[in-house]
Computed example of a mutant assay.
Amino acid sequence: MSAHLDPATPDPSPTSAPPTGTGITLVVTERVRRSQLEAYEAWARRLHVLQGAQPGFVGLHVLRDLSGPVAEYVTLVRFRDRASLEAWRSSPAYREALTELDRFTAGEVEYREAQGLEAWFDRPSRLPAPPLWKNVLVGVVGVYPQIMLFAWLLAPVTGDWPAWAATLATASLSTLFLNWPVLPLLSRALRSWLYPARRGA
């Protein structure tokens, strides 16, 4: 399982195969009371271990924001397909884990499902979505260098291929790495630019 937090936050779980551009993502936003941060993160680590053993689980990504009066965690949990996600959500282990969640959180936990790359531009519901031009710009910044790099790296192999096949190979690798880890890292690094309303929160 793969999880990414702010640099000061310890990795909560082991590593697994990176997610691809397909599948479905459960986006969970939790606002955690500061007095419960240590207990919440210990609970989250146990939950992530359970998720890693769930059939159809692909990977997860965690963003943490401590700038507000309560800590905010946005967790993106990716599964291979909707059936795998529903199996996890109905599992006894998940339901039992949820019984502990209320003692850590301040307010309602928000759940949303997303497909493809849209999950990486997720934000708390109280913030406006980034304008389309920002999302497009981040995507271009993420994918263009990869297209150039993979075209160069694959040239010895694809040099004699038809143009469409060589382009498909380059595009496939670029899309894979855009989804993980390039776009998650870019969205985190550019978070204050994508969501300027967060400044001073």
Rank of each mutant, 00 (worst) to 15 (best):
F177D: 03
V136A: 12
R112C: 09
E30K: 04
A197K: 12
T167Y: 03
A166W: 00
L153A: 11
T9K: 06
R34G: 05
V74M: 13
G56L: 11
D81E: 04
L47D: 06
A42C: 06
W161F: 13
G142M: 00
R191D: 14
R188Y: 03
L194T: 07
T175G: 15
R95E: 07
L63A: 12
E118H: 08
E110Q: 13
V109Y: 00
D122R: 03
L5T: 08
E86T: 12
L154Q: 12
G159I: 05
H61Q: 11
T167F: 08
A42F: 03
E118T: 11
P55Y: 03
L183Y: 08
H48N: 09
A169T: 01
R34Y: 07
P156E: 03
A151D: 14
L26T: 00
P131N: 09
T167C: 05
R33I: 04
F57T: 02
L149R: 15
T175V: 15
G116L: 02
A39I: 01
T22G: 14
V138H: 00
A97T: 00
A189H: 09
D160V: 06
Y73W: 05
L183Q: 02
L168P: 00
T158C: 11
R80C: 08
V74T: 14
A129V: 04
T75C: 15
L60M: 14
G52V: 05
P162D: 00
D6K: 07
I147E: 15
N179P: 00
H48A: 15
R33S: 10
A44N: 12
A129S: 13
G116P: 08
T158W: 03
P181V: 06
T75V: 15
L117I: 12
H48W: 09
L66K: 00
A17I: 05
A163H: 05
L154G: 14
V62F: 04
L50T: 09
F79P: 07
S35G: 11
V143K: 07
P156Q: 06
D6Q: 14
G159F: 11
Q54K: 03
G142T: 00
P145G: 08
V109S: 04
K134C: 12
A106L: 07
L185N: 05
M1D: 09
V109E: 06
I147W: 13
A93T: 11
L186H: 12
G139I: 01
E72G: 01
W152N: 05
P181D: 01
T158D: 07
E118L: 10
T175L: 15
S84R: 06
T158V: 08
P130S: 12
N179G: 02
Y195N: 04
V77W: 06
A114Q: 13
E100G: 03
M148N: 01
S13I: 10
R123S: 10
H48L: 13
G59Y: 00
R103W: 06
P184W: 03
R80Q: 14
L190C: 08
R45I: 03
V141C: 13
